[in-house]
Amino acid sequence: MSHLPLPSPLVSLEWLADHLGDQRLVVVDASTSATNPVTGMPMGAHDAYLITGHIPGAVYADTADSFREPGAPFPPARPGLERLEQVLRALGIDNTSTVVIYDSAFGQWAARVWWILRAAGLDRVALLNGGLSGWRQAGHPEERGDTEPRLAGELTLRERDGWWATTADVRRILDGAAGVSVEVAVNNDSEATLVCGLTASDPGGAQPHHETTLVCGLSGQAFAGNPGDPRSGHIPGSVNIPFESLLEVPSRHLLSGAALDRYPAAIDPRRPVITYCEHGILATGVAFALRLRGHRDVAVYDGSLAAWRANPLAPLTQLAANLPH
């Protein structure tokens, strides 16, 4: 049986509607939370999948639990290949599958699963543009109840190089920019300016002189930091690309590549990019957008700020305009 090709890593609602029922297609609901449409109260994502409905034929993935490595110090750390193979086979995914992923939020959880699958060597994987919200707004059909996954055949996974970054990778970037270890720099005011790449007259996130661009996917407020919390803010020298700035409201469609044009340091194909956020979720959404635009050297810092802050000497910086005078 021939494979079902994808037109893009980001497929339209119409494309999915036209291909529902194709035996080569596995649609994955990667939602992690939901709101009861009657009461407006929060409800479990699996309950919402069963009761309020999902895209016909979609299988439910317990994303926050299944797509992480148990016991990892900074959850939700990506699962190892052995665990991932078990999770994917349970969803009916094998070497013949074409996979389309969506969620009921803004696409960040679907992007997380997309990144994990692509980093593990799977090629025919796409996000649904607009997600479940867009599907509903377009008036496409839904179904309730559970979907029994198909029986999976052989599945071969292999870790792709360059898709994940570690704390050590980020430390090397900052060490190279400062010409001194970050532990030394954070305790020396004159060298700390070098590490940050920021001055009081330059609050916008100037880049230090190194080859790799650090991109923070948090909101502008979180990036700026809280003056009352010295461990808030961002890794020195980072560019801020809030994930929500890449979405069209209210459709939740990912904006075209032009939305990234205001961030020249991040889209320069000559400069590798490492994205991060708080726990590595929004970071995958930004990384997906960069890959979609054509940037091929993008990695996600999986532990993100949760892992970075674990070292009390690891530097963080706040925007100068946000600091107390």
Rank of each mutant, 00 (worst) to 15 (best):
P56H: 04
A321H: 07
S181C: 03
S66H: 13
T199S: 13
F67Y: 12
T193F: 15
L247R: 01
V182A: 06
R136D: 12
A266P: 05
L4F: 10
V300Y: 01
A168W: 07
E244H: 12
L247W: 00
S33P: 03
D202P: 00
L117R: 00
A192E: 09
V11D: 00
V11P: 01
I267T: 09
G107M: 01
G107E: 01
P230T: 14
S190W: 12
S33Y: 11
A265Q: 13
P312L: 13
T284V: 11
L218G: 00
V59F: 02
S66I: 12
G179T: 03
P272Y: 05
T39A: 05
T284F: 07
A266N: 04
A178T: 12
F288H: 00
Q221T: 13
E183G: 06
P141M: 09
G205E: 06
R83Q: 06
M43P: 01
G57W: 05
L91S: 04
I93C: 08
R112G: 04
E69Y: 06
H209F: 14
G233F: 02
V28C: 05
G197Y: 03
T63N: 08
A110E: 01
T96W: 13
D65V: 15
F74N: 06
T193I: 15
G107Q: 00
R270L: 15
G303T: 02
L25V: 09
G179S: 02
E183S: 12
L194H: 08
Q108M: 14
W15H: 05
P75D: 11
I241V: 14
G285I: 05
D202H: 05
L305Y: 03
P272V: 10
G80S: 11
G92T: 03
S31K: 03
T156C: 09
S97E: 11
I267C: 02
R262S: 15
R78N: 12
R158T: 15
G294A: 10
L16I: 09
G237Q: 01
C196H: 11
A120M: 08
S33W: 10
Y60Q: 07
S33G: 14
T156H: 11
P230Q: 14
V184G: 00
S2Y: 06
G130W: 11
L16E: 01
D189T: 14
Q23C: 13
M41H: 12
G294W: 10
A283E: 04
G80R: 07
R231S: 12
L91A: 08
P242C: 08
N322Q: 09
Q137T: 15
S245I: 06
V27Q: 08
Y102C: 07
T199F: 11
R68L: 11
H234W: 07
T275H: 01
G92A: 07
V182N: 01
Q318H: 01
I116Y: 00
G162Q: 05
L16C: 07
F106S: 12
S201Y: 09
L20Y: 09
Y301C: 05
L25I: 08
E142K: 05
N95W: 10
L292C: 04
T147L: 04
